[in-house]
Computed example of a mutant assay.
Amino acid sequence: MGRSSRAEAAQHREQIVTATAQLLRERGSAGISVQDVMGAAGLSHGGFYKHFASKDELLGIATEVAFQSVLAQITDLTERTDAWDAFVARYLSAEHRDAPGTGCANTALAVESARANADAPLRTAYAEGLKGMIEFLVALEGLPEDQEEARRRAVVDLATLVGALSLARATGTTPLSEEILDTVRDELTARRSR
């Protein structure tokens, strides 16, 4: 295989993974087929198995990429003096609620992971991504003296954020959805300032 065809194959693989990461967060694994993924990547579905052994393998890789893309979107916040407030405001926003395909993998893929077999690549990738998000929230705390307490707080905060965003998405663009976002955002930022 020539250099250009290897580069082209790598580019196609990346396109497939990126498209899958978005579709997976938007529709869930049951809502996407190999043909859907390949079409979204702009490729014919016949080439899928040149890149992946199975759809399960692809779902695991796409889950990893979904978590990486979310962390890349929020890493800039760690440098801010109001990092926590900025993170919560971004996470619990109408824009985030309305963009599941590019939003938090924790929220979009929790049910997917729960339904997957214990050894499924998606579940394994989800668990690793969840750990990474918890570590991010601990780092957002700065350097607290009590690391165990910082981790406990990060777990509670993440569960609260994911729950609030899930409820807001489940209620669409209704006043109740806005109330959920506003109330939880206010509570989480006020609690940190006490």
Rank of each mutant, 00 (worst) to 15 (best):
Q11R: 15
T81N: 15
L137I: 08
K131T: 09
A154S: 01
H96W: 09
G31N: 03
S54D: 03
S44F: 10
E179R: 06
G31S: 12
E187S: 04
E95V: 09
A110W: 12
A127E: 06
T124R: 02
A94D: 13
T173F: 12
L143H: 14
F87W: 02
G172K: 05
V184N: 01
G60V: 00
E179I: 04
E135L: 04
V155Y: 00
S4D: 14
V111R: 05
D56Q: 09
A86E: 06
P121K: 03
A9L: 05
Y91W: 13
E135T: 10
L176T: 13
V138Q: 04
L161M: 11
D182Y: 10
L167S: 03
G46L: 13
G103H: 12
T78V: 12
T78W: 06
I134N: 00
Q22I: 14
T78F: 09
T173E: 10
A40F: 03
A30C: 07
V17L: 14
G60A: 06
R185W: 05
V155L: 14
A118Y: 09
T20M: 11
R152I: 07
S93P: 02
D36N: 15
V111H: 08
A86C: 13
R27E: 08
T18K: 14
Y49P: 00
V162F: 08
A170C: 03
D186L: 02
V184H: 04
R13A: 10
E26R: 04
A114D: 13
L158K: 08
D146E: 06
A168L: 03
L137V: 07
G132M: 02
P100G: 07
A21T: 11
V37F: 02
A89S: 12
I32T: 06
V65Y: 08
E145M: 14
R191I: 10
V138A: 04
F87T: 04
R185L: 02
I180R: 03
A125V: 03
A139G: 10
A110D: 09
A72I: 10
F136N: 04
R80M: 15
E145L: 13
V34A: 11
Q73I: 11
A99K: 09
R192E: 06
L24S: 01
R153L: 12
T75H: 10
G31A: 04
F48V: 14
T78N: 12
K55W: 00
R123S: 00
L158M: 14
T171W: 01
M38T: 02
Y126R: 06
E26P: 06
L158T: 01
T102G: 08
